[in-house]
Write a protein that binds this DNA or RNA. Structure first.
Lengths: 256, 256
DNA sequence: CCATCTTTGTGCACGCGTTCACAAAGACAT
DNA sequence: ATGTCTTTGTGAACGCGTGCACAAAGATGG
């Protein structure tokens, strides 16, 4: 019944803050790197640097999982890898379906990062009959008609939507009806899902727009600075975004 | 000098909270949809529903941009589209380069959401000489050797990294040295960039791991409930993730 | 012109997340 | 065994973001 509740499942899960959960994969990746180089222990300072976060934050994050460090020494890499993996549920196997095998869907199917961490692509599904049977990343694409059967047969609880925006909600509804309770959505749409279903979205266009905002801001400040400096610090042809006074309330002429 | 400072440029930009900036693209998308259906005005309530957020939050967000609504009526759709576009810097043209034309890079090149919002793919760059000249999404791939020249000639300030993890930092360094000040990183690595450069990262594997965490939590709760209920509410074969007591401090046997 | 009704804009309180700073804990050398 | 040194784990303060609830503003009808 809840409409468009994107990530952040509101309730703090088992005492572990959502923000911490979001960082655990980051730590895990850094730790895996250390593990491969056979580093036995790390300090919070070192690991924090490798993961790109504050060391105090990292220690507090780990404190939610338990006391897994040794004072004066640091954390045992292998042990921590195991603990975080277990906490994230990566010690079990998660079958995943990808719906919508266009460019993006194919890229996802080929993405190595899945298999390496407990995720297994159980099926690729597309609405185009011409795609059916065609192998992508070594897996034959199946037609949408089979969606429900595939989900149930494989016990799939995580679905990835990589369809065009128009089809996303419909696909989402079918996935949920068939038993999927976690969805990763790449389509640029707000999905409505019932309570108890988690949705996370990845929107390339939105990320770029956020960057553009900051980029514009930088260009504006720089233009201001250059106004009484003379030498522009950055390359040749960059537009200056001149209009718009320093304060927000421009008398902008742009009627209805 | 700053290491791995991912998004959140710390300083609140021009008084607009970062959280608000991140939602503006969402509003813009919803508004664009309304605009195409020639809807003249929307209330905060309606628009909030379409964007999947709280209406109070939406109103507060808009209040940072100025007073663009009319009490008793709502917001003028076209006017708001313009204001948000301007605020995000989408009224100007942003040339973008994509580095690393594998599956993902190709998918990005083909992604329609870019062109529609002021972004223009200025060049596709790959390190593989065999790719050079090969057209992807109608644009010929260029070799990495040309990177600096391309950036400077086109005044590119936004770069997208879709290379393997191993190459990402090196590519990043070259982009920054050539004048790029905003980077969208798809490689699963923490990038180090100097101050003044913004990095946003998109990590498919991390999103899935976060979902897995919540999925595991749900399975655990459900198992607990089913323990004295008898009828599992969800489909047939789902693993139960039984071990692990209700409290965090498991005496787990997994030594160093 | 006045009353009513709708919807915005925002003051305020609350909760989450971050960061600082330090005491407690353990390793290690002597 | 004792002291020193390193590093963890956490109490406490702070700041940001969210959501409630309401007053102000304007439209609309009589």
């Amino acid at each position: 019944m809840a409409t468009g509740r994107s990530h952040r499942p509101a309730t703090r899960s088992r005492g572990i803050p959502e923000a911490t959960v979001a960082r655990l994969p980051l730590y895990l990746r850094a730790l895996t790197g250390l593990s491969e180089r056979s580093v036995p222990t790390v300090s919070s300072e070192e690991l924090a640097a490798a993961a790109g976060v504050n060391s105090a934050k990292l220690r507090k994050d780990f404190s939610y999982l338990g006391s897994y460090g040794t004072r004066g020494v640091g954390y045992d890499v292998e042990y921590l890898v195991y603990q975080i993996s277990r906490e994230l549920g990566l010690t079990q196997d998660w079958p995943v379906v990808i719906v919508g095998i266009g460019n993006l869907g194919a890229a996802l199917a080929n993405y190595g990062g899945f298999a390496s961490r407990g995720f297994r692509v159980a099926a690729l599904i597309d609405a185009d009959p011409a795609m059916a049977g065609k192998p992508v990343a070594g897996i034959p694409v199946q037609h949408s008609d089979e969606l429900e059967k595939i989900i149930e047969d494989n016990g799939v609880s995580i679905g990835v939507i990589a369809t065009p925006a128009g089809a996303a909600q419909q696909v989402c509804d079918r996935l949920v009806a068939a038993g999927v309770t976690s969805i990763l959505n790449f389509a640029p749409t707000v999905l409505s899902v019932p309570d108890g279903v988690d949705v996370r979205k990845v929107d390339l266009s939105i990320e770029l727009q956020i960057l553009a905002f900051h980029e514009q801001r930088k260009a504006g400040e720089e233009a201001e600075a250059a106004a009484h400096d003379g030498s522009g610090p950055v390359a040749a042809t960059r537009r200056e975004a001149a209009e718009q006074g320093p304060d927000g309330d421009v008398p902008a002429v742009m009627p209805a």
